[in-house]
């Protein structure tokens, strides 16, 4: 099941004031032709759907190829099955959401993202198939260090203690489980969503709220966070 099939979340709070969308540009000729043929009847539509499926199969294979190194335990035919399933599901999603295409990008770009999403979600779920999803912190060690000098190590210990206190005290049990699974234990969000019978958007909202509480808790206790965080 994709995030597209399990509900929507428009924006994480605090919502970004979305700039009013500009009027959609006129479709480029190729996009127009895709829409015309996919909305046609009979053989024209069948041929367009077959062309769309081929396009999306290529995108799904591309995604799988990018992630192949993380899926060494899978044989080639299993990966091809995943690509085929992703392409079939993505084709259905595109056909179902054809009226959502606004011409803000080329049609093929818009369609590709459905195949990439389906392939990525299937691969993440496959990688975690049969594995327990850890909801308790089992990797706080990342915050301990033997490489830092005494002052930095002391500072780090203090911050770690504050983080652990904030996780334990400032969050609801659900926020704590979601934060720990996603941000500490590295569980993919689609995998956790499936295990908790929810969807990616709702889980990310929970994660966002938990992060906001953690930040506020740490700032209230005098920690300056800006120089401690690094984007990956």
């Amino acid at each position: 099941m994709s995030i597209l099939e399990v509900g929507t979340v428009k924006a994480v709070e605090p919502a970004v004031p979305l700039v009013a969308a500009p009027p959609p540009p006129p479709f480029d000729l190729e996009s127009h032709e895709w829409l015309r043929t996919l909305r046609a009847d009979g053989a024209t539509r069948d041929a367009a759907i077959a062309r769309l499926h081929t396009l999306l199969l290529g995108a799904a294979r591309f995604e799988i190829s990018r992630r192949r190194h993380t899926m060494r335990h899978l044989r080639g035919n299993e990966l091809e099955d995943i690509a085929a399933e992703a392409a079939a599901d993505a084709t259905l999603s595109v056909l179902r959401r054809l009226d959502d295409f606004r011409g803000a990008s080329r049609f093929t770009t818009w369609a590709y993202k459905f195949a990439l999403l389906e392939a990525a979600v299937k691969l993440r779920k496959r990688a975690w198939q049969g594995r327990e999803v850890p909801l308790e912190p089992d990797d706080w060690d990342i915050f301990s260090s033997t490489a830092l000098g005494p002052d930095a190590a002391s500072e780090q210990r203090e911050l770690l203690a504050a983080v652990q206190t904030a996780v334990a005290e400032a969050l609801t049990p659900h926020q704590r489980s979601v934060l720990v699974a996603l941000a500490v234990n590295g569980v993919p969000i689609d995998v956790l969503a499936e295990r908790l019978s929810t969807n990616r958007g709702a889980l990310y909202k929970t994660l966002h709220d938990a992060r906001r509480k953690l930040r506020a808790h740490l700032v209230e206790r005098g920690f300056a966070l800006a120089d401690r965080l690094e984007a990956e």
């Binding site: 995030i3 929507t8 979340v9 428009k10 924006a11 994480v12 605090p14 919502a15 970004v16 979305l18 990342i142 915050f143 260090s145 780090q156 911050l159 983080v163 934060l179 941000a183 500490v184 969000i189 990616r200 958007g201 990310y204 909202k205 994660l207 966002h208 992060r211 953690l214 930040r215 740490l218 966070l225 800006a226 401690r228 965080l229 690094e230 984007a231 990956e232």
Partner: peptide, 21 residues
């Protein structure tokens, strides 16, 4: 690495859209 781990925990400071947007 500690900074990255904290980054994963605390997330972006600026406003952000959600997954569906």
């Amino acid at each position: 690495e500690i900074g990255q781990a904290l980054g994963r925990l605390l997330g972006p400071a600026e406003p952000e859209v959600g997954c569906d947007v």
